[in-house]
Nucleic acid binder design. Structure first.
Length: 356
DNA sequence: AAGGCGGGGGC
DNA sequence: GCCCCAGCCTT
């Protein structure tokens, strides 16, 4: 039997604040662990405003874990299209299938079982178990890091093993074990709306008298920011190849961005190249040397596409062929009207939205 | 421990 | 531009 932990009155302040400021959100109106899990995966590294419509669409199309398990990965990725971090969608689908098989379609209730699902780490397992089941698990996410770092003026980086231990322990000591779901959501909402990263309005903060970093003037430096990595440029030359009302797609299967999404035939080059250089690449010759009358009608440069640590310089060439050459036989031939059925990256989506 | 993995919104 | 978001996984 564990000794009863003293509940901090900071938790009470945050919960009181939460009662007056919380945003009404659809996943706060259910106790279904499946829907709460779904919301937590969607919200990983994603703002509420960005994930809200995705949650609505997923909850509508896949109202339970069995329907999600019964879908194809392509359909799940298509519904996820545009949200980013696509491994979340692949893991979500794989986890649903595991629940269907190993747990007989019933979302597990034990922390370790939940934590064992693909795409579920310490944060998501704690969030689901506390919110859906009332289990005393303290969540630690980006909001919690910031709130804790400021309250205690902790100069501890969050992206180290020691830092994670430190904040996890602080979060545990702050947790109100009698209402862990409410407590966790209160801390996160507080971080999202009041204790914001930049220019927080500390004058009206309910914790202004107990915030050590406010007293010391270090709010802007908490938590300590990690050093930024330089964005590595990549050069993508896409070929929108058309022949007899069809076009070509390929599935990205490598360990790279946009894994399992579809795209036009791609020639990646180590630097920006013009059409003349592109034609001299081995790939172009492999694909088109035997192709007869190749008509390239234009090149559409795209704006720089910025990812977290990549900046993609992309352009799309439109290539019209009289017949399909053998060099392109490994691609999927897709009716032009059917392209929209395939999950694609935001970059390709933007190109397609430009139309003809 | 470090790096890969998206996309968008706020300043 | 830069920061960072209800993180997780691989190496």
């Amino acid at each position: 039997m564990r000794p009863m932990k003293q509940t901090s009155d900071i938790s009470a302040v945050l919960i009181e604040w939460y009662g007056r400021h919380f945003r009404p959100l659809p996943w706060r109106e259910t106790s279904d662990p499946y829907l709460i899990w779904l919301s937590e995966v969607i919200l990983q590294q994603t703002r509420v405003a960005q994930g809200l419509d995705y949650f609505r669409r997923f909850a509508s199309r896949f109202p339970d874990v069995r329907s999600l398990a019964a879908a194809t990965e392509d359909e799940v990725l298509k519904l996820w299209q545009g949200l980013g971090y696509y491994s979340r969608a692949r893991s979500l689908h794989a986890a649903a299938r595991r629940v269907a098989e190993r747990f007989d379609g019933v979302f597990p209730t034990g922390y370790d079982d939940v934590r064992s699902l693909p795409g579920v780490g310490d944060y998501t397992a704690s969030a689901v178990c506390s919110i859906a089941y009332g289990q005393p698990c303290a969540v630690v996410d980006g909001n919690v890091y910031r709130v804790l770092s400021r309250l205690t003026d902790a100069d501890v980086p969050t992206d180290t093993a020691a830092g994670k231990r430190y904040y996890a322990e602080r979060a545990r000591s702050l947790l109100d074990e009698s209402r862990p779901g409410l407590h966790n959501q209160a801390v996160m909402e507080f971080g999202a709306l009041q204790c914001v990263p930049a220019n927080p309005d500390c004058e009206c903060c309910p914790l202004r008298d107990r915030c050590l970093s406010l007293a010391r003037g270090t709010v802007a430096d908490r938590p300590p920011k990690r050093e930024k990595k330089a964005a590595v440029p990549r050069y993508f030359n896409y070929l929108h190849v058309r022949c007899a009302g069809s076009t070509l797609l390929a599935k990205r299967t490598g360990r790279d961005i946009w894994r399992n999404l579809y795209e036009f035939p791609l020639i990646e080059t180590p630097r920006a190249v013009d059409f003349g250089e592109l034609q001299r690449t081995a790939r172009w010759r492999e694909w088109f040397d035997e192709a007869g009358d190749v008509r390239v009608s234009g090149m559409l440069p795209m704006p720089r596409h910025v990812l977290s640590h990549r900046v993609i310089h992309a352009c799309f060439y439109r290539v019209d062929l009289p017949t399909w050459p053998a060099g392109l036989s490994s691609f999927l031939k897709v009716l032009s009207s059917e392209i929209s059925r395939y999950p694609v990256s935001r970059l390709t989506e933007l190109y397609l939205e430009r139309g003809e």
